[in-house]
Structure formats: structure tokens, C-alpha cells
Design a binder for these strands. Structure first.
Length: 348
DNA sequence: AACTTTTACAACCGCATCATT
DNA sequence: AAATGATGCGGTTGTAAAAGT
């Protein structure tokens, strides 16, 4: 079925509304109430499209609209609702009295979305972007004082950054270092031997600083450099699998396939993934760097402890807070699902 | 001070859905 | 049931103001 345009566009004014137009619209609606938008411009004497009038009223002129900065509570609500509903701005707006869907949408796109991205959070899924983590740093920090001959970057080589097995190994090594230093040293020796022997016999490794995200190139022929790189990747994959196999000899897998030391297996009951909240009291993410300059969590998550104070729902300082403070607080609101195998405490 | 770039947000557009005839 | 109208919604654009050079 064909649809006629909502209004005759010929001769109708567009663009920003003038104060005079606003007054005409307000006066008219005060007298007749909102609604019947198509007829409204003509009846009110406005050279505007009815749709434009409705938008101007609902998004700007309505007396119950709250203007000014979003409060911490509002921001928190938006983020939480968005994680549940997605871009259902009108539904989100319904939960925020005085705020319009348009305003929330704009605020999301210009503030919250960017902030989440800066903090390593995917604004669509609300999940931490672990692909931004530097696993090399993770492993280095876990090993801490490893022999200088063990090149962690080489070990990681071309592995995808978000490799659950590697995360498991990081956790395993961290746990071992804490629980069984003797065994930890034996591990290191094995790793070292394994790495040295395999690195000597295989093709050169990719540059440690190579951005793994750039590796996802499309290969179109079998003779291009990309293919060569891919072959190296396969070699590294076999190295890595061999490494994993060696590791597994003295480890076992938990119910979810995560690698844990056999001596500690009984301490890992089957349980759902931890819902990790970065609230100040519960996590102290800031201490991740304690005694460890390598670890790079700070680069992807701001520190909840740096927020001005714990949230006080009745506080009034909110509107005068800085963007940084909001950013800090914002990240503390987000819940991260951390793989069971990766114990954040191990990196503190 | 002048110019350029970035940011913030009001407004527009097209489509979907619901209501009415 | 089909056609049409009214309204709502979400993505996108335009532009003024602010920030940077």
C-alpha cells in the first residue's frame, strides 16, 4: 500500500525553531492539548510539518522535560538498561523521568559510547574487549622473574589474543607460583626448554610487536606474503599445541576445559562463571599493579578507586563532576564476565 | 586573531506499527 | 480485509559552539 507523505513539504519551514515558533506551539498546546499533529500546524498558524511540531514538543518544549547534565544515577540506569534492551531508546527513556529518547540517544552516542570504548568495553555487547588485552604482558606478569631467555612474546607468537587455553596457562602459572614455588620453577624450566628447542627448529617468529589484529588479512593467493605468514602461524599453532600438551601432562582440565594444576583440581568446584563487578569494595582492581609494572589492566579499565567517592544516591555533587570522574565511576558500574580460569587476584 | 577541527545536540528522514475507516 | 492516516521509533545529518592550532 502506498503511503502519502506525512505532510505537504512544499513551503514548509525546516531547521532550527525560533523562539516565536516555540511560543506559538506552546500556546496552542496549552489551549488544545497535544495530539492531532497533522492538523496542528495549520490550526496554530505554523509553517511546519506536523511531525516537526510533535518532535519539537516532545523533545524540547514539554514542560516536564529535565534539562542539564545526566546524573550518575541516570547514567548508571542508561548503561544497565542498554545492556538489557539495546538501542530501545524510548523504552530506556520511559524509565528516566524527564528525559527523552532523543536526548538519551544523543548522550549515549556522544558520551557513554565513547567512554565505554576508551575503557575497553564493547558498547554493543557490554562485554570487556579482551582482544585489547596484551596477553604477553599478562603472561609476563604471571611469571614475574622468569628467566630472561624465555621470550614470552615468542611463546605467544601468532596466537589469537583471546585464547582461553593461554589464559588458563597464565592462571595456572600464577597459581603455581603462589602455591608451589618449587613446581613453578620446574614448569619454567620445561617451558624454557620447550621454547628454545622449538624456536631453533622453526621458521622465524613474527615480530613481537606486530599487532595481532592486523593479522586477519584476507589471503587470496597461495604465493603472497600473507600465505607465508599463515604458514608461520600454523607452525606456531603446532608449537603452541605442543606446549599445551606438555603443560597438560602435569595439569588437568576442569569441567569447562580450563587448564588447572592437578594438585589444585579439587579446589575448583564446578560453578558458573563469576560475575565480576568492579565495585570499589569488592575488587580493588587498582591493586592489580602492586609490585607489577608489566600488567596492563589499567590500559583497558579505569580504576574504580579513583572515583570521587562511593556512590551516594542522595548526593548532589553529581552535576558538577568531571568527565574523568564519571569515566572512572562508569567503568566501575560495569559487570564483567571473567573466565573461571582467570583469577584476577593472581595478578594483584 | 584567524582558521580548522571536533563536539554536542537539535532536527530530519524513512520505516514500522497501531488505529481508524 | 484492505486502505489510509497518525504516531512512534531509531538512525542519521546539519550546524552552532567549543577547542585546538
Amino acid at each position: 500500500m502506498g503511503r502519502s507523505p506525512c505532510c505537504d513539504k512544499n513551503g514548509l519551514k525546516k531547521g532550527p525553531w525560533t523562539t516565536e515558533e516555540d511560543n506559538i506551539l506552546i500556546n496552542y498546546i496549552q489551549m488544545h492539548g497535544p495530539g492531532n499533529w497533522r492538523a496542528l500546524p495549520k490550526n496554530a498558524g505554523l509553517e511546519r510539518c506536523g511531525k516537526s511540531c510533535r518532535l519539537r514538543w516532545t523533545n524540547y518544549l514539554r514542560p516536564d522535560i529535565k534539562r542539564g547534565r545526566f546524573s550518575f544515577e541516570e547514567e548508571e540506569t542508561i548503561i544497565q538498561l542498554h545492556s538489557l534492551m539495546g538501542n530501545k531508546w524510548s523504552a530506556i527513556a520511559a524509565r528516566l523521568p524527564g528525559r527523552t529518547d532523543n536526548e538519551i540517544k544523543n548522550y549515549w552516542n556522544t558520551h557513554i559510547r565513547k567512554r565505554l570504548l576508551r575503557n575497553g568495553i564493547d558498547p554493543v555487547t557490554h562485554a570487556p574487549r579482551l582482544d585489547l588485552l596484551d596477553l604477553s604482558s599478562l603472561l609476563s606478569s604471571a611469571l614475574c622473574n622468569i628467566p630472561s631467555t624465555l621470550n614470552v612474546s615468542n611463546l605467544l607468537g601468532t596466537q589469537p589474543l583471546l585464547n582461553p587455553q593461554m589464559l588458563s596457562i597464565v592462571n595456572t602459572l600464577s597459581t603455581l607460583r603462589r602455591e608451589n614455588p618449587e613446581m613453578f620453577l620446574q614448569y619454567l624450566q620445561q617451558i624454557n626448554l620447550l621454547c628454545n628447542s622449538q624456536m631453533q627448529t622453526q621458521v622465524p617468529i613474527s615480530q613481537p610487536n606486530q599487532n595481532p589484529l592486523q593479522n586477519n588479512q584476507v589471503c587470496t593467493t597461495s604465493s603472497d606474503p600473507c600465505t607465508s605468514f599463515f604458514n608461520q602461524t600454523q607452525v606456531m599453532q603446532s608449537n603452541f599445541e605442543g606446549f599445551l600438551s606438555n603443560m597438560t601432562n602435569i595439569s588437568c582440565l576442569n569441567s569447562q576445559g580450563n587448564l588447572i594444576p592437578s594438585s589444585m583440581a579439587e579446589n575448583f568446584p564446578s560453578q558458573p562463571n563469576h560475575m565480576f563487578t568492579g565495585l570499589p569494595e569488592s575488587s580493588s582492581l587498582q591493586s592489580l599493579n602492586n609490585g607489577n609494572q608489566n600488567f596492563g589492566f589499567d590500559s583497558v579499565m579505569s580504576t574504580p578507586l579513583s572515583s570521587p567517592t562511593h556512590l551516594n544516591s542522595s548526593s548532589t555533587y553529581i552535576n558538577s563532576s568531571t568527565e574523568d570522574e564519571r569515566e572512572s565511576y562508569c567503568s566501575s558500574l560495569l559487570k564483567f564476565e571473567i573466565p573461571e580460569s582467570l583469577d584476577i587476584n593472581d595478578f594483584m
